[in-house]
């Protein structure tokens, strides 16, 4: 195999594997005569997706924007708290246990509370997306700051740099790759958050669509919703990965030149 062929195959692999998975699924449904209400065939799911295209797109966009806003808030909040925790041992010891406790709470449990406070609609979905996705950002940003090499710190201190200068000149650039790595995790979590909220109590969005289709025994539409979330998740992940490469190319450096 030539190098060009190897590269082409590498690029084609995700598509080939996905197609193979669908083919096996389709064949299994036919071979074992599985009823559509239990597990619809992929071809049925695609047909339903095309049939109900406009409502799917509409609800996808709903879920996408609530997720995006929640995610955006999580980046802002996560970076600020992460910087505070990473830069100050006092903030760290004060806030960290609380954050861990908060992160351990199943987010499903807070949606009903949010609905009591904010009513049904976009607000609970945004907030759920926020609370579920900001923790990994906090932890990663704090880790980036906490792992500054002691020698680097000594160099800065012996130059007479203030703590603020050490933070801005060393800490923040150093935390950037950690931040972007966490964004890839956080964006998929944010989708989970907004969909959970829509499922527990919403009147729009993919989560709501799946729940109501499920109630009508319309399994094919439920699966169409799942696919829609998965596709949005992959696209947003790819966007984060692209931004990461653009912003912190130095962190992806190859081997040191001998």
């Amino acid at each position: 195999m030539t190098d060009a062929q190897r590269n082409a195959l590498k690029l084609a692999m995700p598509w080939l594997v996905t197609i193979a998975m669908f083919a096996i699924w389709e064949l299994a449904c036919i071979a074992f005569n599985i009823q559509e209400i239990v597990l619809p065939r992929p071809s049925r799911i695609f047909a339903v997706s095309v049939e109900r295209w406009s409502i799917l797109l509409d609800f996808c966009l709903q879920t996408l924007w609530t997720t995006a806003i929640g995610f955006g808030l999580a980046i802002i909040g996560g970076v600020l708290i992460g910087l505070a925790i990473g830069a100050s041992p006092f903030v760290y010891s004060g806030l960290y246990p609380l954050l861990i406790a908060f992160n351990a709470i199943p987010k499903v449990a807070i949606v009903p509370i949010l609905m009591i406070w904010l009513g049904v609609g976009a607000a609970p979905a945004i907030i759920t997306a926020f609370v579920i996705s900001f923790f990994p950002i906090v932890v990663n940003v704090a880790t980036g700051l906490a792992t500054i090499e002691p020698e680097m710190r000594d160099v800065m201190r012996s130059l007479g740099a203030s703590n603020y200068e050490i933070l801005t000149k060393v800490g923040i650039p150093r935390a950037m790759p950690y931040l972007f790595a966490s964004l890839k995790v956080a964006i998929t979590l944010a989708f989970i958050g907004s969909v959970i909220s829509e499922t527990v109590g919403g009147n729009r969005g993919i989560g709501f669509l799946m729940l109501s289709a499920g109630a009508r025994n319309d399994t094919a539409t439920t699966f169409a919703g799942l696919f829609a979330i998965a596709i949005m998740g992959v696209l947003m992940y790819a966007l984060c990965a692209w931004v990461e490469k653009r912003m912190t190319g130095w962190a992806f450096r190859g081997e040191l030149v001998g």
Partner: peptide, 25 residues
């Protein structure tokens, strides 16, 4: 100060690394 480990910042070019003390002192 210089250590065994060069502790240059990988996000800065060599020139910008050497400019660092001038931004601080």
């Amino acid at each position: 100060m210089a250590f065994q480990n060069a502790t240059l910042m990988p996000w800065r070019t060599t020139r910008d690394n050497i400019l660092l003390p001038l931004e601080v002192v």
